[in-house]
Design a protein around this nucleic acid. Structure first.
Lengths: 329, 329
DNA sequence: CTGTTAGCGCTTTCAG
DNA sequence: CTGAAAGCGCTAACAG
């Protein structure tokens, strides 16, 4: 097996020069760099990941924990998110792998922690008080959650910037002249961001609690006029409900958008372009959001070593929100 | 960070004793083992994966390349296969991760090879002359294909034992008195195994070429009696076609199984149990099949080092076929 | 801009 | 049954 020593000998330089020529972490004359690269090319040398990870003390490997796509039909959003993570991590000079899906999530996280090979983990599909998050926190492994959930400690996350999204949506509805706004949600309590924005705009919000299914959307359309006569504008974060609601409205004598303006806020940029023209949509770029998470991850890893504290290069796109970084170490 | 040196000091033994207590690669007195384990417990010590990989020279990590489940609806078979691989690899004392899905398969394989961190790779969804296989072969990275394809060099694979499966199916049809057998396939050429078995049993085979879609199955049912009047038995490897065919048959005046016996051979054990009772099925255990691949993988890795040439523990279950191992070194 | 060198934490001979 | 010690291939000071 070819090592850096071989390359050094062949190129007539020292081993460290070879390393720096490859990593670019210090300046090298163009001439020597060329010779090193030629030697690498010639020998077909490949870096030894394990050696680098050991020597640097920081494995440049991020592990992704996501929901099992083989269990239920996977969402387009998750696919876009995964793409974004992989790219974001790579841009930061690390690599990412997906941890095998399993039915026993807690057992998997223990295996991952015990293996102790990844520099950090990115978690998707996290629920409130998710055991995996507690385990990761306890094991002191850097992690970032894509989304948010309730925990009794600080943690890193990347999520949609709901405040901006809701602001945009409600402002739009107000411009159209709507005052009484229905909010489609699975819970009956009002989202705090939504509440805040609405009070600033002097709009009246009414939560309409419904299951996020096609059936739920259909049922909603059926009785909407009778049950919510005052409502003329709707803001919805539920994709299935919204679709079914709009599709069924006409047959129940509800004319959209003439009698009711609807804004859907949980949709991908790509999907938005081909969406139902009866609904206004506020799309978000899942790719950018996920990409951010990769960068946060790598920042956290670097901070852990207390070196290379490079300034954050995080790009916070529209509708992307980054949680404050928990102090590690 | 706790290291093996810390554990050794705490337990009052040498570092190597700690290692052997953990790995079990040489005998240790029960007493010392207990002390070592206690020290590990007490300190919360976690092995350093990178250090172990570097020192042993054989990274105990298998990378899985599978089709992107976010692109098309993933099959149950692929899910079961993945489960089996993970278990098989783990049983062999290694770990596995899934390489991120991507649209550019060739770019991904180059990245994987360049990273040089995995002891071997398991490939699913391989097509004839798949570039990824050529790259892996050229880079001299141990790999196993789940399934089979055409290449101009030897390679390791695990696949269904089609010869046994076809033998079973055709024997069954013969017992039922059928002589003229239709073969549902996407290609027009007859599978060599099928041909071989049929000639031994003196059965007449006729390939019926059809796309593996529900529409294809429906169209087939419509004209089946007119186009293939002589055929009374069918063997099919196409799951979608078979389902649609059987469902549609009655409405086109074709009575199954009275007029036509059908055997489906591309189905999971679990699916077979709840399958259409009009079809006979030869199920296979995807889990066992995939599990085998994990073990082969680890064997190949070991062979690569020319040490620890332990005897194969491969369990070849019914309908599981293992390709002859390519000489590495 | 380049070289020297001391480790990173673990595995595995070799020697008891 | 246990210890000592030589690396595995690379990184990152430190020294020019």
């Amino acid at each position: 097996m070819t090592t850096r020593a071989d390359i050094a000998k062949l190129a007539g330089v020292s081993e460290s020069t070879v390393s720096y020529a490859i990593s670019g972490r210090r300046s090298i004359s163009e001439a020597t760099k060329q010779r090193v690269m030629a030697a690498i090319e010639q020998t077909g040398y490949k870096a030894n990941y394990a050696a680098a990870a050991l020597a640097s003390g920081a494995p440049r490997m991020v592990t992704i924990l996501t929901a099992n796509p083989f269990e239920a039909p996977p969402s387009q959003i998750d696919g876009a998110l995964l793409d974004g993570i992989v790219t974001g991590v790579r841009e930061s000079g690390s690599h990412s792998v997906i941890w095998p899906f399993s039915n026993d999530k807690n057992a998997e996280i223990e295996a991952l922690i015990k293996l102790n090979f990844s520099g950090g983990v990115i978690l998707m599909d996290v629920t409130d008080e998710d055991q995996r998050v507690h385990s990761l926190n306890r094991a002191n492994i850097p992690f970032v959650i894509l989304g948010r959930a309730k925990f009794d400690f600080a943690y890193n996350f990347v999520d949609r910037d709901f405040e901006s999204v809701y602001k945009l949506g409600l402002e739009h509805l107000k411009e159209l002249g709507h005052i009484n706004i229905g909010v489609l949600a699975t819970t009956s309590e009002l989202n705090p961001y939504l509440k805040k924005v609405a009070s600033a705009l002097k709009l009246k919000l009414k939560v309409i609690s419904v299951a996020n299914t096609l059936i739920g959307g259909n049922a909603l359309a059926k009785n909407f006029k009778q049950e919510h006569p005052e409502i003329t504008g709707v803001i919805s974060i539920l994709d299935y409900v919204t679709t079914a609601f709009v599709d069924a409205a006409a047959q129940y004598g509800l004319s959209i958008p003439d009698e009711l303006s609807i804004i859907g806020v949980n949709i991908l940029e790509e999907q938005a372009e081909s969406s139902n023209p009866k609904i206004s949509t506020i799309a978000f770029n899942a790719y950018e959001m996920a990409r951010s998470s990769g960068k946060i991850m790598v920042e956290v890893m670097a901070a852990d070593k207390n070196v290379r504290k490079k300034k954050s290069e995080l790009w916070v796109g529209d509708f992307v929100d980054r949680g404050s970084t928990r102090a590690i170490s």
